[in-house]
Computed example of a mutant assay.
Amino acid sequence: MPQTETLMRVDAQDTDEIHWWRQLPDGNRVATWSARQKMNGAARAMLRAGALAARARAGFYGARYEQEADAFLERVTFDESPGLPPRSAPVRTRTGAGAARGARASDAQAQADPVGGRTLAARIPVAGGREEAVALYRALRAAREAVSLHRSSGAMEPFDAAVELGVSHELMEALLQSVRGSEGVRVTVGWSRLSGPPPDCPRRPAPVVFTPGDQAALQQAAHRYVTIEPSQAVRLTGDVVRMRRSEPDGPGAVRLRVRDGAEVAQVRVWLEAEAYRIAVHAHLAGLPLLVSGQLESRGGFRRVSGAHGVAPVPVEAAERERLMKSLGEGLDGFGRALGTSGPPPPAPPAAPAPDGGRRG
Score class of each variant (00 low, 15 high):
Gly213Pro: 08
Ala317Tyr: 11
Gly102Ala: 11
Leu290Met: 08
Gly309Tyr: 12
Arg92Gln: 09
Ala51Gly: 11
Ala146Tyr: 04
Glu316Trp: 10
Leu140Glu: 00
Ile278Gly: 04
Leu327Met: 08
Gly129Gln: 04
Asp70His: 14
Ser326Thr: 14
Gly309Arg: 10
Asp14Gly: 02
Arg130Ser: 03
Arg255Pro: 01
Gln109Cys: 12
Ser231Val: 08
Thr6Ala: 15
Arg44Ser: 10
Ser297Cys: 07
Leu218Gln: 04
Phe72Cys: 02
Val187Ala: 04
His281Ala: 06
Asp113Gln: 02
Arg138Leu: 11
Gly286Pro: 00
Thr211Val: 07
Leu271Ser: 08
Arg242Cys: 03
Arg123Pro: 01
Arg242Tyr: 10
Leu290Phe: 08
Leu271Gly: 06
Thr77Glu: 11
Ser148Arg: 09
His281Ile: 10
Gln109Glu: 14
Gly129Asn: 04
His281Tyr: 09
Met324Leu: 14
Gly184Val: 01
Val269Glu: 05
Ala221Leu: 05
Met8Phe: 13
Leu236Arg: 03
Ile18His: 02
Arg22Gly: 01
Glu80Phe: 11
Ser192Arg: 01
Leu287Asp: 02
Ser106Pro: 01
Ser305Ala: 15
Pro198Tyr: 07
Leu287Thr: 02
Glu157Asn: 13
Ser182Tyr: 03
Ser178Val: 09
Arg57Lys: 15
Gly339Phe: 13
Ala253Lys: 09
Met8Gln: 12
Val147Arg: 02
Val76Pro: 04
Met46Ala: 03
Gly299Met: 10
Tyr61Ile: 01
Met39Asp: 06
Ala221Cys: 10
Ala43Met: 08
His150Gly: 01
Ala56Met: 10
Glu316Gly: 15
Gly238Thr: 03
Leu194Cys: 09
Tyr61Gly: 02
Glu173Asp: 09
Asp79Ala: 11
Thr4Val: 15
Gln294His: 11
Asn40Phe: 07
Leu165Phe: 14
Gly116Ser: 05
Val187Gln: 00
Leu52Thr: 00
Pro205Ser: 04
Thr32Arg: 14
Leu136His: 02
Pro251Gly: 15
Ala206Cys: 09
Arg224Thr: 05
Ser153Ile: 12
Val280Ile: 12
Ala285Phe: 04
Thr15Arg: 09
Val315Phe: 03
Val91Ala: 03
